[in-house]
């Protein structure tokens, strides 16, 4: 493990975005990164997680595909003369249990076709999802568990 890894990543992003590739600028970025990470020191994740780069790439690819599909679907639905929708909220039993995985899954669900996460139950086992087409909740649950949740488990376990 490289010491100050997160600070270094932030410094590199700072250099790339500010557009001047010089040592003083890198040091300045490192300082800012250190201050930022110092401010959020209490909220940092306590658990170290494994990240599998290949599975993460697959997850990102799936996400971009689903995002474009979902925008197209919303566009088609909105432009159809008679809107034929059956919206509703369905409960989704979570298989992932760590906080950041739940957050990631909820965010991904929000940006994918016809679903929008509304709430998580207090015991963190159920996610409540608002579906644009809720005529078949079983199918929607299957889609989530075999799409994003499986990929998240592959990428971070």
């Amino acid at each position: 493990m490289i010491p100050y890894r997160n600070e270094l990543i932030l410094a590199l992003i700072w250099v790339a975005i500010s557009g001047s590739y010089s040592i003083p600028n890198l040091v300045f970025g490192f300082a800012i990164g250190w201050i930022v990470l110092f401010l959020v020191r209490d909220q940092r994740l306590a658990t170290r997680t494994v990240i599998r780069p290949w599975a993460l790439l697959l997850l990102i690819g799936l996400f971009i595909k689903e995002l474009l599909l979902s925008a197209l679907r919303v566009a088609r639905l909105v432009l159809s003369p008679r809107m034929d929708i059956k919206p509703g909220i369905f409960a989704y039993p979570l298989k992932v249990d760590r906080d950041f995985e739940i957050t990631l899954l909820a965010n991904l669900i929000t940006l994918t076709p016809g679903t929008l996460s509304v709430d998580v139950s207090d015991d963190r086992r159920t996610l409540f999802v608002h579906g644009m087409d809720c005529s078949d909740p079983e199918q929607a649950r299957r889609d989530i568990s075999q799409g994003f949740e499986r990929r998240i488990l592959e990428a971070f376990r």
């Binding site: 919206p87 909220i89 509304v118």
Partner: peptide, 15 residues
Amino acid sequence: RMWGGSVSDDLGATV
């Protein structure tokens, strides 16, 4: 509340 045409509301029971 949700629109009258909504078909299911699992959250309502637990909220």
